[in-house]
């Protein structure tokens, strides 16, 4: 049985797809057979971030409608043998998903994989509900600013009331907080909410803090999940995050302003 993890946020543009790609890749790096499913029907992005956009033939909606089988639609990652992507359809809209179809596909994936990462669309409408409905765990991606935090709070409410686990009275979805685009310097200046501020409001377990980093944009543009850039701060923070996700204890990094050495102060960096 696979563990189904939804990556969700409510708000758009906070880093759900970047996170899905990074965490899926990270789990595969750790030896777990992983599939990342793009639930953002109509706004297909995951394939770009994963660098497999030229190999998309069939998609999630084709599989749901029985126009293709899973084997035809799953795209195997070129870098890792145990990592697969199920792309979204670009030509349809989010109403193309329905619970029965999604459940059937997830059940089929569940037999074969250790982890299923569901990359949720933004919003709280049917598309996002489909992505979170069958989840066992949720990674709530939040930026350190008030509107993102409030939207995350809203999604947390949905997770505890609108999911299959909630409806069937099973133990609730395990919730994790992932703070992205964190900039310790701006936090220090009081321009950005701190980890503690966000923790205080959302009150769920902190899974990771990803620093604001140029490496993320570079990674996205080159179709290389940022976690593979092990030299970058964001890549390392995602590696830590994946370790915590599978139960390891790893200290948090990149929370404080890095002290600049003399040379860095002179030459910048």
């Amino acid at each position: 049985m696979a563990k189904i993890i939804v990556v969700t946020s409510g708000k758009g543009g906070v880093g759900k797809t970047t996170t899905s790609a990074a965490i899926g890749t990270g789990l595969a790096l750790k030896g777990h057979k992983t599939v990342i499913v793009d639930f953002d029907i109509g706004l297909r992005n995951l394939d770009l971030i994963m660098g497999c956009e030229r190999r998309v033939v069939y998609d999630f909606v084709n599989v749901i409608n029985g126009e293709a089988n899973l084997k035809q639609a799953l795209i195997k990652d070129k870098r890792l043998d145990n990592l697969f992507i199920l792309p979204a359809s670009q030509t349809r809209d989010k109403d193309a998903l329905h619970k029965e179809g999604v459940e059937r596909v997830l059940n089929e994936l569940s037999d074969e994989f250790d982890f299923i990462i569901c990359d949720s669309p933004a919003g709280i409408e049917s598309g996002a509900m489909m992505a979170l409905y069958f989840a066992d765990e949720a990674i709530v991606v939040t930026n350190p600013e008030v509107s993102s935090v409030r939207d995350s709070d809203r999604i947390l409410g949905m997770l505890s009331s609108k999911s299959r686990r909630a409806e069937q009275g099973l133990p609730g979805i395990k919730e994790h907080l992932l703070l992205t685009r964190y900039n310790p310097e701006r936090v220090q200046k009081g321009e950005m909410l701190s980890v503690d501020d966000v923790n205080d409001i959302l009150a769920i377990k902190l899974l990771g803090v990803i620093p604001e980093s140029q490496a993320v944009l570079n990674a996205s543009n080159s179709g290389q999940p940022v976690i593979l850039d092990a030299d970058s701060d964001a890549g390392q923070a995602y590696l830590d995050t994946v370790s915590r996700l599978v139960g390891e204890t790893v200290p948090f990094r990149f929370l404080n302003v890095e002290k600049k050495g003399l040379l860095k102060r002179i030459f910048g960096g």
Binding site: D153, R154, L156, G157, M158, S160
Partner: peptide
């Protein structure tokens, strides 16, 4: 016995 989230 739990938090009441935004929108609830």
């Amino acid at each position: 016995e739990q938090n009441i989230r935004s929108g609830q």
